[in-house]
């Protein structure tokens, strides 16, 4: 299989994950699309390095999160205007307004976290084990545990406020 074919298959496998990362790190559709492309471009640029690595998901999450993190956001955007709801649901056959509301709330709560915590909660919600989260983020295993406990606490207090 050629490099391009392999890359396409990897991106297709992880397109949902990239979408979720772009959603929590941006607050409008244009920025989201820009970031999506940036991430795919960075993954392509470093695809050769992945082929020597053991775990594809670690490589993918690391580069995607780093790209999201080091990207300059346009100034002057106000608040968190969740424009992704339609993007997520427009292609589904059954439109579920309740689910869309829950999704908005979810992004609002995650959007209120800082950059580091956003990455951690995303990895946690993606079902990553603490060991892999530590590997991707460079935090110690105990630090991952402590931080995730704090984030959960933060989210709980946000939930109470709401």
């Amino acid at each position: 299989m050629g490099k391009e074919t392999q890359f396409i298959s990897v991106i297709k496998q992880y397109e949902g994950v990239i979408f979720k990362i772009t959603t929590i790190y941006t607050d409008n559709k244009n920025d989201q699309q820009d970031l999506y492309q940036d991430i795919v471009y960075q993954l392509w640029k470093s695809f050769d390095s992945f082929r020597n690595e053991a775990k594809i998901s670690t490589w993918m999450y690391r580069i995607a999160l780093n790209t999201a993190l080091t990207r300059i956001r346009k100034k002057g955007r106000q608040g968190i205007s969740i424009s992704i709801d339609k993007v997520v649901l427009e292609h589904t056959e059954a439109y579920d307004s309740q689910f869309e509301e829950r999704l908005k709330l979810l992004y609002k709560q995650i959007g209120a976290l800082n950059a580091l915590d956003k990455g951690l909660i995303l990895l946690f919600l993606e079902g990553k084990k603490y060991e892999e989260i530590a590997e991707i983020t460079g935090l110690s295993l105990s630090n991952v545990g402590t931080r995730l406990a704090r984030i959960k606490q933060k989210l709980k207090s946000q939930i109470v406020k709401n």
Binding site: I8, I11, E15, Y41, L103, L125, K152
Partner: peptide, 30 residues
Amino acid sequence: LDEIKATWSQMSDQLEQQKKLTDKIILEMT
């Protein structure tokens, strides 16, 4: 938190079902 997890999981399932990227789009992005 359980609802957050459930919503995240439901969204992941939906995203899996509605894959939109074509080979052409991916190559254009590179």
